[in-house]
């Protein structure tokens, strides 16, 4: 058999504790993407590496809920093929207006089921 490059899927990931919600997000991408039902439910071509996932989660964390919901397709790589999160949520001491990865993935599964 020929040599292959294997990609793995996280089924258990540690939820990270972060600074209070008033902390300025480290990274924020303003690239607009259209969140269509089909795009949100589609499977990423390949599993992104951990650094990419962490960056994407940080980006999600710095975004308002309604803005994030409009870009579910952009955040689709945070979820596995079946629509379950590849990264843990960010545990906070105070309520934050942003979406958690588990909520994005729930949205992905919801759209997938429609």
């Amino acid at each position: 058999m020929r040599r292959r490059v294997l990609t793995t899927t996280k089924v258990l990931a540690v939820a990270l504790a972060v600074a209070p919600a008033c902390t300025k997000p480290e990274a924020r991408h303003d690239t607009e993407s259209t969140a269509t039902v089909s795009a949100a439910a589609s499977v990423p071509a390949a599993r992104p590496d951990d650094a990419t996932l962490a960056t994407l989660r940080t980006e999600l964390d710095g975004m308002k809920r309604e803005d994030a919901l409009a870009k579910v397709a952009h955040f689709r790589p945070l979820c596995d093929e079946a629509g379950f999160p590849l990264v843990g949520n960010l545990a906070r001491k105070v309520q934050n207006p942003s979406l958690q990865p588990s909520e994005v993935c729930a949205e992905v599964r919801l759209k997938k089921g429609r």
Partner: peptide
């Protein structure tokens, strides 16, 4: 282990262990 992991992830993710 996978089922337990799914529950932990549905609740927001694993705690550091």
């Amino acid at each position: 282990a996978e089922l337990s992991a799914r529950v932990a992830m549905a609740l927001g993710g694993a705690v550091p262990l």
